[in-house]
C-alpha cells in the first residue's frame, strides 16, 4: 500500500545530516508508490533541498532563528509540513530534535509516536514500528490506532540515500517565539575521531577501577590507529566522572555501530548493550567469564585488563 511520508530533516553544516539521509532511504523503501517529502529548517535549507536524496518535495525555511533547535519554534513549521504533505507516516531521528519533537508533534496531531525505533516496516499496508524496551532486554512491535504514524528512528537503522534531491520546494513560515530561551552552549571538545563514526571503538566500564585507566584505552586506540579507533565509556563509568558524558555509549548516550567494538571491563548491562549491540563484531576483555558482555561477543579474553590491554597495545603496535 502506498504511504505518503514526511522525513523531518536536520541540517549539519548546511547539508542534510547523515541521519536525515538514512531516513530518506528508509522512506523510499516504505513509500510503495506514495510520496517522500522532507522538511528542512535553518540557514541553507533551500539549498540543502537539492541534496535531500530521495525526496520529491522539500518544505523549507532559511530563517536563521531555526538554527538552534527550540521545540516551540520548530513545532508549527513541522506540523504545517505534515499537513501540507498529506503524510500518513512521519519519520525523524532519535536526536535532540526528535526526542522533543516526536511526542509534542504527535500530541498536536492527535496521534502517537513510537520512540527510538530500530525498524519501521509495512505489514500488509499497516505501519509497524519495532523498538528496544526494558533497557534492551526486550523488543516491542507497535501499530498505530491513529494517523499519521510518527516514529523516531535510531541512527544507522537504514543505509543513507543517494541520488538526486527534491525538485520542488515549498516555503514554510519563519520562526515564531519560544518560551524556552537558549542562553548558551558548551561544546565538549573530543579529540580525534567521533565514536559514532569510528570503524573501531574501544569502550571502558566501571571494572576499570579508576579514571586513569582511560589513558590506557586511549593508548590502545592510538596503537590500532588514530584514524580508525575512538574511545567511549559505559554509563557507570561516566556517572563516576571518569569520562565525558558526550562519549557515553548506551541507551541514554550514543549508539555506536562500528565494525569492531572492543569492550574492556564492561559487564554488558542491557542499558549499555542498547548502545553497542549493532556493532558488526564485539570483542570483550573481562575478569568474569560469566559476564553478560560475553553473550554478545565473538571473541573473549577472560583476564585482568591491566595485563591484557598493555599486551594488546604491544601486539597492535607490531602492525
Amino acid at each position: 500500500m502506498p504511504h505518503n511520508i514526511l522525513v523531518v530533516g536536520e541540517l549539519d553544516g548546511g547539508t542534510p545530516s547523515s541521519t536525515t539521509l538514512e531516513l530518506l532511504n528508509g522512506a523510499q523503501g516504505l513509500a510503495g508508490g506514495g510520496s517522500v517529502s522532507v522538511s528542512l529548517l535553518g540557514t541553507g535549507a533551500s539549498a540543502a533541498a537539492a541534496q535531500a536524496a530521495g525526496a520529491s518535495k522539500a518544505f523549507v525555511s532559511d530563517d536563521a532563528n531555526y538554527d538552534t533547535f527550540r521545540g516551540e519554534q520548530w513545532l508549527p513549521a513541522v506540523q504545517a509540513a505534515v499537513e501540507q504533505s498529506g503524510a500518513d507516516l512521519v519519520l525523524m531521528g532519535q536526536t535532540t530534535v526528535g526526542r522533543e519533537l516526536g511526542p509534542r508533534l504527535a500530541f498536536r496531531l492527535n496521534t502517537a509516536v513510537a520512540m527510538d525505533c530500530v525498524a519501521v516496516t509495512d505489514n500488509g499496508g499497516t505501519i509497524e514500528a519495532t523498538r528496544p524496551a526494558y533497557g534492551g532486554n526486550a523488543q516491542a512491535t507497535y501499530t498505530f490506532a491513529t494517523t499519521p504514524a510518527v516514529a523516531t528512528v535510531r541512527a544507522k537503522s537504514f543505509d543513507p540515500a543517494t541520488g538526486g534531491g527534491a525538485a520542488e520546494t515549498v516555503e514554510l513560515p519563519a520562526a515564531g517565539e519560544s518560551r524556552v530561551n537558549v542562553t548558551g552552549k558548551e561544546v565538549t571538545e573530543s579529540a580525534g575521531l567521533a565514536i559514532t563514526e569510528a570503524p573501531i571503538v574501544v569502550g571502558g566500564g566501571r571494572g576499570l577501577g579508576a579514571p586513569e585507566a582511560f589513558e590506557d584505552l586511549k593508548n590502545l586506540a592510538a596503537a590500532i590507529g588514530t584514524d580508525k579507533a575512538a574511545v567511549g565509556a559505559s554509563r557507570a563509568a561516566v556517572d563516576l566522572g571518569w569520562f565525558p558524558p558526550s562519549e557515553q555509549i548506551g541507551l541514554t548516550g550514543k549508539v555506536v555501530t562500528p565494525d569492531l567494538y572492543i569492550a574492556v571491563a564492561i559487564s554488558g548491562a542491557s542499558q549499555h548493550m542498547a548502545g553497542c549491540s549493532g556493532s558488526k563484531m564485539i570483542v570483550a576483555v573481562n575478569r568474569d567469564k560469566d559476564a553478560n558482555i560475553f553473550a554478545f561477543s565473538k571473541y573473549g579474553i577472560v583476564g585482568d585488563w591491566k595485563q591484557v590491554v598493555p599486551a594488546l597495545i604491544e601486539e597492535f603496535k607490531k602492525g
Partner: peptide, 26 residues
C-alpha cells in the same frame, strides 16, 4: 491508547563467544 503493542519479545543475541586461549596475557 493510540500506540498498540502487538508483540513483546526477547531478541536473539546471535554470538557464540570463543574464549581466546593462551598461557599469558601476551
Amino acid at each position: 491508547a493510540r500506540l498498540q503493542l502487538q508483540k513483546l519479545f526477547i531478541p536473539e543475541k546471535g554470538a557464540q563467544v570463543e574464549f581466546i586461549e593462551g598461557e599469558t596475557p601476551q
